[in-house]
């Protein structure tokens, strides 16, 4: 593995993986505790419409895709706030229409033939340095916003109604959160692919939630787990010559099932121990 580090593409891959892990750990924590995984998935897929639009109009990839995803995300957020019981249907529609728009726009773009697979699973081994700077900037902006509004995000995520009563601008923070999800998804999509984005947004925070005493520590643990999964997956892909994105997801998936198994065993031993103490208590002297 060490000899691989002399290649620039490998160094970039490790850096990109680390930054994607931190962004996904932080944003994924908000996604998981606010139960908007489906919405995040919708944004990730609708972003494909933005990719198509950028190619068709000849806009720079980032501006077009971020713009399109932000609009799609804000429509979804508005629907979630206003028509809660219909939100999943509307998100499903935007999800599908966004993707179809992207594919048709690329069909209509002369001379271009973009590989859909590379956006589904990403191309972490082909990250240009320019993308690293964009990810770094997005990561810093997200961390700064979270630092300033941490208490508000915490209160909104835990108990939206109470937060509203304490004067927390819940509507504003909700839109801000959705916008951050959209930007994070777009920024990491080209690197790790939209399927991996959803995996990194959900699996590490899900595992981290059980071992965290606060939202901040959940973000930190999720980011760390995410980095471990990414690096193990990269190593696996490098040594067994597999598709990197899929390898990372398989490692994360293995982690997911392992954590469920550990949780089951822990619960069983706890029950056993309780039973033993109960028996010991009731046994005659």
């Amino acid at each position: 593995m060490l000899e691989a580090l002399q290649f620039e593409f490998m160094r970039n891959a490790l850096l990109a993986g680390l930054m994607a892990s931190i962004i996904c750990g932080v944003i994924g924590t908000l996604v998981v505790v606010n139960r908007i995984v489906f919405l995040a998935g919708g944004i990730a897929h609708a972003a494909y419409g933005g990719i198509g639009l950028s190619f068709f109009m000849g806009w720079p990839y980032l501006a077009g895709t971020v713009g399109f995803s932000l609009v799609a995300a804000l429509v979804m957020a508005m629907v979630t706030l206003r028509l809660r019981h219909r939100a999943d249907t509307v998100i499903g529609v935007i999800w599908a229409v966004g993707m179809a728009t992207g594919i048709i726009l690329i069909d209509l773009t002369p001379g271009y033939n973009v590989d859909l697979m590379s956006y589904l699973f990403g191309s972490i081994l082909a990250v240009p340095s320019a993308d690293l700077y964009q990810m770094f900037a997005a990561g810093v902006v997200i961390l700064v916003i979270l630092f300033f509004y941490y208490k508000g995000f915490l209160a909104m995520s835990y108990d939206e109604e109470f937060a509203r009563l304490r004067g927390v601008p819940v509507g504003l923070l909700y839109f801000l959160m959705i916008a951050m999800v959209a930007v994070s998804v777009v920024i990491t999509i080209r690197v790790v692919g939209l399927i991996l984005v959803i995996a990194l947004l959900t699996i590490p925070p899900f595992i981290a939630e059980k071992y965290s005493g606060s939202l901040a520590s959940m973000m930190a643990i999720a980011g760390l787990l995410s980095a471990v999964f990414t690096y193990c997956g990269l190593w696996l892909a490098y040594s067994a010559n597999l598709t990197s994105g899929a390898a990372i997801i398989m490692v994360a998936g293995a982690g997911f099932f392992a954590s469920m198994l550990i949780e089951k065993i822990r619960a069983a031993t706890r029950r056993k121990k309780n039973q033993q103490t109960a028996n010991a208590g009731s046994a005659p002297p």
């Binding site: 505790v33 995520s157 835990y158 109470f162 304490r166 005493g213 520590s217």
Partner: peptide, 12 residues
């Protein structure tokens, strides 16, 4: 399941 302590809830 929310990762938060009793004290942090009260601080809200």
């Amino acid at each position: 399941e929310f990762p938060i302590t009793a004290l942090d809830v009260v601080l809200m």
